[in-house]
Design a protein around this nucleic acid. Structure first.
Lengths: 206, 206
DNA sequence: CATTAATGTATACAGTGTAAACATAAAACA
DNA sequence: TGTTTTATGTTTACACTGTATACATTAATG
């Protein structure tokens, strides 16, 4: 007989608790100093308990990354909903949200894009989440093309151009090198706007 | 009395040999599985010998990253020299070389930009090398502005826009996620050209 | 040639991921 | 209900890591 709340027995939902604790520890320090044992200790279980829920450390990291992609999808969706029928504004808003999310959880972003995890179908859930996020971007551009405000051309190529611009800025921002490279203080909002504006320039019809 | 070739005594130049061996091992596997002990074994010294030349593992990684930035500067310089007096072509060539270099040594690129190393002046040599690379880019844009083919505006902001676009594409390429996300095979040259063209579009005067 | 500093080695230790054997409690079934 | 099976958690063990410390050797310096 199933409980109404679908919990396993021993520890509520240890799978979820581990993911949650690991995410927090990940952002507390950097990614290479995240240890499974610290996660287990934080949750209050033995240091091998996580192995009942994750094949190995990489598998846990993949779980965290997948959550990151999911959150990214949510943000993209909200960006679209914020400006119905205005793909340009949608794109600008999406860019801001992309950057903001990355700044909120830089370590997770590095995990998602740092080449740490395999990108093939080793982790189907991870791959699916990543695909969905990119689909969100493509949808915006597709609508812009349909409206006639974005230029025609290969959809994926255009989407990739836009993504590259925002992605590059984002990683430079969370990489932390900019304050030491730029001669003026970094104004995230200004930079993001400037770059998305630039991208929109190259995306305009005619 | 000094030898004509300025070598220390025991092992030729162990400092250099370690850097070299570490770079190779870094690209052989990924960054998190690079161990100091493996480097030492490869060079043929005891596993604590590297500590005479590098304060700790991070310090060795910083040395490798600095070499990466230096190579990047070389590539930028060559891009400029390939097309004298044509900043547009210079920029396009620089983009290609940026991508090519990253594809040749993806792990080193992740090391340089993955937020693994501190960006402050913990490693002055690293910071200096990074600054020099960015200066190379700024110089191209500055010339383009002087020629009147690039639009006026804050130099660093424009440089950052261009850098972001190329940088984003580069990291997506070496991250390896693109083949699983795009529905067509990845043609690096084509993608790079498309994106630099797009960037140049947004950079044009008028 | 004696001294000193630079460089390399041997040993030791705490922390890591993870495999294996064992323990327990929930679920499934008789 | 009582027994079996399976899911989950613990204990122990091991190889490997970075790095501190004490020692050895050799080049440079006087």
């Amino acid at each position: 007989m199933k409980q109404s709340t679908a919990k396993p027995y021993h520890h509520g939902d240890l799978h979820q608790e581990i993911l949650c604790a690991a995410s927090e520890l990940l952002e507390d320090n950097n990614i290479s100093s995240l240890s499974l044992r610290a996660v287990a200790k934080k949750v209050g279980v033995s240091h091998t308990a996580p192995y009942r829920h994750f094949k190995d450390k990489e598998s846990l990291l993949a779980g965290i990354a997948a959550l990151g992609y999911d959150e990214l999808s949510v943000q993209l969706t909200q960006a679209v909903e914020s400006y119905p029928d205005d793909p340009s504004k949608q794109l600008q808003e999406a860019g801001h949200r992309y950057v903001q999310l990355a700044l909120k959880c830089p370590q997770c972003t590095q995990l998602m894009f740092g080449g740490i995890l395999p990108c093939d179908d080793t982790y189907p859930e991870l791959k699916a989440s990543g695909d969905m996020a990119f689909d969100g971007l493509k949808t915006i551009i597709e609508e812009g093309q349909a409206c006639g405000i974005f230029k025609k051309g290969d959809l994926e190529l255009l989407a990739l151009s836009v993504w590259s611009g925002i992605h590059g800025l984002t990683l430079l921002l969370i990489g932390g090198s900019l304050p030491d490279i730029l001669s003026v203080p970094v104004d995230t909002r200004l930079l993001t706007t400037a770059i998305t504006t630039n991208l929109l320039e190259g995306l305009k019809a005619n």
